Computed example of a mutant assay.
Amino acid sequence: MKNGLLAALLCGAMLTGCSSMGGVGNGGSQSLVLATPLQVTYQSELKLIRLGQMINAPEVEPEKLALLFYERGATYDKIGMTSLARFDFNQALKVKPDFAEAYNYLGVYMTQMQEFDAAFEAFDSVLELQPDHQYAYMNRGIALYYAGVTHLAVADLEQFVSYDPGEPYRNIWLYLAQSETDPEAALAKLKQRQQLHATDAWGWKIVDFYTGKITENEFVASVTVGIDNNQALAERLSETYFYLGKWYQAKGNNNFAASFYKLALSNNVYEFIEHKYALLELDLLSQQRQALTQ
């Protein structure tokens, strides 16, 4: 990476008005793409008020009460109020102990906190209640990946890919897990899936970059294609910078990886797994630094 991107990263970190910094990756001049961070909307605030009123209304049926707690928890999650979200999901489970979706959310939170046994228990509960719950396989696979249980992570993520092989993010997470044990074989398998299943969906641009089909400049240049509003841009940037962080981390450049994880977080797309796990990645990098200094 050339020094221009480092300058651009520092520029973005300092929230200055830099608009054109050369040298992303290995070729050409490319600006660092930034979006206005997403803010809590009036609609979300009003929804929380209404849900609170409905929850506190007298004689609410248990089934409806559980759904109301779940919906308010999902709304809290969307705006980054994780502790309140966790409380509501737990309340939903108290009312309705077989609420699979609430377990799924709680498992993700446990993964973020590196409480892996609790995460596995939550995802196992989801799959006991709904054996074909696709995203429980994804989330348990990711939890296993971060816990270092790679062979089980790969098994879960292979199952997740099997439900929709043309969905790029499924293929990316499977590649990340497989690359933990054999990076070259993982890349070859990713190329095979790319050849068989790639579509025009933008997420395949990430795969194109990982497999060397396009350069980093070309990848970053693709970010704004088809984007016509700030929210869509913020969401795409959250994904872009997270997976750039994973790519640089795999290359051993933890400083750049950390910068990209922070950029992923800067968009405030709290509900995306890329935002959630960017926080975890930064925690893990911090733990590595502390271990080295000790």
Rank of each mutant, 00 (worst) to 15 (best):
A85E: 05
K94Q: 07
F160E: 02
P183N: 05
K2R: 15
L279W: 10
I227V: 15
H151E: 15
S286R: 12
E281M: 14
H133Q: 14
P62T: 01
L65A: 03
L190W: 03
E271Y: 09
S238N: 09
R170K: 14
N171A: 10
R236P: 00
G73Q: 04
L285G: 07
A185S: 11
V126M: 05
Y70F: 12
A136K: 01
T199W: 09
E158F: 08
K276G: 02
M113R: 13
L84F: 05
E71G: 01
L32T: 05
E180P: 02
A74Q: 05
T41I: 04
A102G: 04
L292R: 13
R86F: 07
L10T: 09
G52V: 00
G12Y: 10
R72K: 10
R72Y: 00
A122T: 00
E184Y: 07
T215G: 11
V95M: 01
K78S: 13
I55M: 06
F256S: 11
E121F: 06
A291R: 15
Q114G: 06
R289W: 08
R140H: 06
A8T: 10
K2S: 12
Y109E: 10
Q192Y: 10
D182L: 07
L187N: 04
S238A: 12
D182N: 14
E45Q: 13
A57H: 04
N255D: 15
V126C: 06
N171C: 08
D124Q: 13
K64H: 07
M138V: 04
L5M: 14
Y163G: 11
I172P: 01
N171E: 09
G166R: 07
P131K: 14
A100H: 03
L32V: 14
A232Q: 12
D156P: 03
V108A: 08
K191T: 09
G252D: 13
F256T: 14
A118T: 08
M138A: 10
A122I: 00
K94C: 02
Q287T: 12
L6F: 11
